[in-house]
């Protein structure tokens, strides 16, 4: 470590703090999978034995599969739509000199700084006044509002990360806007697009607040879990389901963040 400059000397106290921080961040979540393998209806120490029982039980309940299917459908639709819209918006924000641009960006990012419950009830009121009955479509609309800012925030640094002259060079070499997009712009922002698809899918898949107000008869997975919490005898299988969801979410998001940061020089998430 002697090659480090004076300012960068290691600090043992901070290092211990950082380790403790990460531990506290992760350990609580790990109790869910731990108890999902515990052979007891009650979540308490000491552990009483190892079992796959709750997972098997889960496998056999059609309501789980139905809500999984619902969440998948909403998630896929939301991730594709919000990533496409986010790509177009990020492209416009970084490449055009737009009057009122800052206000527009702030408007699109607004959902990040407004409590979700406000969106949920507002949309609920609008839909009921219009006579639209609640369904997976209304959940999708709600999730789009939540996910679009994240898609834009993921894609913006990508567009900012490569020079405008790349696209100009393509135009100069004879390609019109359409071909320039597919031959230069898209390959260069592809990691951002993949990251955005995975992130928005995960957010939608896990989203509860909007879904709570906007779900009709077809429950999404988090809604299903919420209703199951009322029945103590189902608690262990909820733990099993939660473990699976956590595992898949962690994997998806890890890949998304990793890919999303590839090749970006500045390690910066533009959410602030």
């Amino acid at each position: 470590m002697s090659e480090l400059s004076y300012i960068k000397r290691p600090n043992r106290g901070l290092k211990i703090y950082a380790a403790a921080f990460l531990t506290v961040l992760y350990v609580p979540i790990l109790f869910i999978p731990l108890f999902s393998f515990n052979d007891s209806l009650y979540v308490k120490f000491p552990l009483s034995g190892f079992t796959f029982q709750w997972y098997i039980e889960l496998w056999e309940r059609s309501a789980v599969w139905d809500s999984l299917g619902n969440s998948m459908r909403v998630g896929v639709a939301v991730s594709i739509i919000s990533t496409i819209l986010g790509t177009l918006a990020a492209r416009a924000i970084t490449r055009s000199r737009l009057p009122g641009q800052n206000a527009i960006v702030a408007f699109v990012m607004l959902p990040l700084v407004i409590p979700g419950i406000i969106f949920g009830v507002s949309l609920l009121i609008l839909l009921s006044r219009l006579g639209v009955s609640l369904s997976l479509y209304t959940v999708t609309l709600g999730h789009l509002v939540v996910c679009l800012p994240f898609a834009v925030a993921t894609l913006l640094p990508r567009f900012e990360g490569f020079d405008k002259s790349m696209e100009e060079a393509s135009a100069d070499l004879g390609e019109n806007g359409w071909f320039t997009f597919w031959r230069v712009t898209f390959p260069l922002v592809l990691p951002g697009v993949i990251a955005s698809l995975l992130l928005t899918f995960t957010i939608s898949f896990d989203e509860f607040i909007m879904a709570f107000f906007l779900t009709g008869t077809d429950a999404t997975l988090p809604m299903f879990i919420w209703t199951q919490l009322r029945f103590p005898q189902n608690f262990p299988s909820v733990l099993a389901l939660a473990s699976i969801i956590l595992l898949v979410s962690f994997l998806l998001v890890f890949v998304a963040l990793w890919v999303g940061r590839l090749g970006l020089i500045e390690p910066e998430e533009s959410q602030s």
Binding site: P28, F31, D206, P222, V238, L246, W258, R261
Partner: peptide, 18 residues
Amino acid sequence: IILMTLPFWTSYLLRVFS
């Protein structure tokens, strides 16, 4: 950075639940 931010992206409901 990914380790620090990873939990945020996963289910809010489940983190509260834990």
